[in-house]
């Protein structure tokens, strides 16, 4: 007798744990051939609220980690992803990719994570400056993470879309609340399992599944989200987010790059979620040429 397979329950990922949506709702996206993929959590605004709380409490610790340590953790994500190729391959194909397309997407995703792992302790050196002020002060501008960043992931690219948006943001020390692709959500939760087993502290990345239109308003108006990465396809949604974001002056970035293209990875995507902090301190110059003492 053929063994009955165990089906995976797709839950959401908040604070390093996998709860079901508090709303108890679900939806069943279908692939191109009309086949139901799975029952997926239809996250509510309360799930978003919980995710932001988790992201906020993880922020301080993540931002203060040594850059080298963040680098190692991000690299570890790539290692874990490599080990789970088969599962992603299956999910991508189930969602409509050919085997070749799926393999390409997985390879690109792993390589992209490695790419950003390398940037974790380098982008600061590219974007920071020592500023030669005229007065007797030492002055430098350094990068600091913006805080909690909301991500509306691309509709296309179930895995590479998440990787391309989330990884540069956490590489820069921010924490993330991400809404996965509505029509291609399978990889999102499997990716969350990768994150959970790869030393990324709970709360650094939180992933919800559900309806963009429903959650948009709450992403935009939430006063404890500091920045938003909008990679969705709707100009109207972007405009709405821009208007809502004035509540606490969120930084809004529209991620328009094609994730399958090399141009969609660069340290400038890390810089998008950085604040420039400039520090001054006096320099005492005893006996210096300008000293009168």
């Amino acid at each position: 007798m053929e063994r009955l397979g165990i089906l995976k329950t797709y839950k959401i990922y908040i604070g390093g744990k996998f709860p079901r949506t508090e709303s108890g709702r679900y939806y069943s996206p279908k692939n191109a051939s009309g086949e139901a993929l799975a029952n997926i959590c239809l996250s509510s605004r309360k799930d978003l609220r919980n995710a932001v709380v988790a992201a906020r409490s993880a922020f301080g610790g993540w931002a203060e980690r040594a850059a080298f340590n963040r680098s190692q953790i991000v690299y570890r994500i790539a290692e874990m992803l490599e080990g789970r190729r088969a599962q992603f391959l299956e999910e991508l194909m189930k969602q409509g990719s050919t085997k070749q397309q799926a393999e390409k997407e997985i390879n690109l995703s792993i390589d992209r994570i490695v790419y950003y792992a390398g940037w974790c302790d380098k982008y600061q050196q590219i974007f920071s400056t020592v500023n030669p002020v005229s007065s007797s002060h030492f002055n430098f501008s350094a990068m600091e993470p913006t805080g909690v960043v909301g991500v509306i992931a691309p509709e296309e690219g179930s895995l590479i879309g998440l990787v391309s948006t989330i990884i540069p943001i956490i590489a820069g020390g921010n924490t993330v609340v991400c809404l996965a692709s509505e029509k291609l959500p399978l990889c999102a939760i499997t990716f969350a399992e990768v994150l959970q087993t790869s030393d990324v502290p709970g709360g650094v990345v939180n992933i919800l599944t559900g309806n963009e239109k429903e959650l948009l308003e709450h992403f935009g108006s939430h006063m404890d989200i500091n920045a938003l990465c909008y990679a969705g396809a709707s100009e109207d949604h972007l405009t709405q987010l821009n208007k809502l974001s004035t509540g606490n002056l969120k930084r809004i970035r529209n991620f328009e790059a094609n994730c399958m293209d090399e141009s969609s990875q660069s340290p400038y995507f890390i810089q998008d979620y950085q604040e420039v902090k400039t520090t001054w301190h006096p320099i005492e110059n005893i006996g210096g040429s300008t000293s009168t003492y």
């Binding site: 400056t129 500023n131 030669p132 002020v133 005229s134 007065s135 002060h137 002055n139 501008s141 420039v276 400039t278 520090t279 001054w280 301190h281 006096p282």
Partner: peptide, 13 residues
């Protein structure tokens, strides 16, 4: 501003 305040300079963001 550490041990100073309200300093400005064109080179300083």
């Amino acid at each position: 501003w550490a041990n100073t305040y309200n300093r400005f300079d064109p080179v300083s963001p």
